[in-house]
């Protein structure tokens, strides 16, 4: 019978042994870890892309702001009144009143047409309401309903909302999300295959050692353990490499993204991989490596029996 200390010692020995073996063949290890790293970097990169696309567009709520243009000459009091009514609806998060005067002043300041505007006696701009839907009420159906309600006021000239753009964007994100899922699955199988094959070859190389170990009474579990640690280590190192690749790529792209955003008047800053995603990647990588090694070892080790 073995005690917990011995059990622990065995696992530490197996882990150290696996580390040592990888370190003794740095080039082969580097290739395997490199392949795993690239395979794992792709899903993380894709996830970052999707996350950033969503964040850059203000997580939908911004993209679906409705602009309500009133007919010229509608009194501001009436507009305020209607704004109150809009605020009372559950689907509405905020309502901003932009009086025609304020809009004109802003336009005068930023457009550079100040002098031309002076030539016009009356303010050509209408009062406008900026209506932002609730975060939970931004489905296309809800938005259409809200738009219909706002357009039903007789004082309203036009309700503008790029719902088709929202629909398309939604669809694109959905496609990307599914592609991400499939890519992650395919690449996970790839990692399993790479680790499994590497471990299979290593088992073949250490056949003599396995035979002797079994001969002196080593159990299958004992023989398998170092290979499982090797597999997990491959996965772990591959995941760390993937995290490094994604981090490096993010650092290169982020300034360009900031410039791009600035050109559109946005202060958007690119998101890096979150801590939780990185931890998931590392845990998932190690688990995949362990599983790949287990699959290879389960098939191979039973076949290797000592011969005298």
């Amino acid at each position: 019978m073995i005690g917990p200390v011995t059990w622990f010692t065995r696992h530490v020995q197996a882990a150290l042994g696996a580390t040592g073996r990888l370190a003794r063949a740095p080039l082969a290890t580097l290739f395997t870890v490199g392949v795993i790293g690239l395979a794992l970097a792709m899903p993380l990169g894709l996830k970052l892309f999707v996350d950033n696309a969503r964040a850059a567009t203000g997580d939908f709520a911004n993209a679906v702001d409705l602009s309500v243009y009133f007919k010229i000459g509608t009194p501001l009091e009436k507009v305020q009144q209607l704004a109150e009514r809009a605020r009372a609806r559950s689907a509405v998060a905020t309502v901003t009143v932009i009086p025609a005067d304020a809009a004109l002043a802003e336009f005068r300041q930023y457009s550079g047409f100040g002098a031309a505007l002076d030539a016009i006696a009356d303010n050509p701009l209408p009062h406008v309401l900026g209506v932002r839907p609730q975060a939970g009420a931004d489905t296309p159906a809800e938005l259409a309903k809200l738009r219909e309600y706002l357009a039903s006021w007789p004082e309203v000239e036009l309700v503008q909302m790029d719902i088709e753009w929202v629909n398309r964007f939604n669809a694109i994100l959905d496609v990307l999300r599914r592609a991400l899922l499939i890519a992650a699955l395919v690449l996970a199988v790839g990692v399993l295959a790479v680790v499994g094959n590497t471990i299979r070859l290593e088992i073949q190389n250490r056949r003599a050692e396995i035979e002797v170990t079994k001969l002196v009474g080593g159990t299958n579990a004992f023989v398998r353990r170092p290979f499982l640690y090797t597999g997990a280590l491959y996965g772990l190192l591959g995941a760390l490499l993937a995290a490094a690749i994604v981090f490096a790529a993010t650092s290169v792209i982020a300034p360009a993204v900031a410039d791009l955003a600035a050109a559109y008047g946005s202060r958007f800053e690119m998101l890096g991989a979150s801590r939780i995603d990185t931890l998931r990647l590392i845990g998932g990588g190690a688990a995949l490596g362990w599983l790949g090694a287990w699959m290879a070892a389960a098939r191979q080790l039973v076949r290797i029996e000592p011969r005298a």
Binding site: I2, G3, V5, T6, W7, T9, R10, Q13, A208, E209, E211, V212, T213, L215, V216, G217, G218, T219, F222, A308
Partner: peptide, 30 residues
Amino acid sequence: GVVFQDHKLLVDRPVFDNVALPLVVAGTPL
């Protein structure tokens, strides 16, 4: 205990490791 004509030693391990193997698989304390 089995002794072979070709002794079946692990040539990449020192004598100590070879001799200790049966104890290691049996979980003998270090």
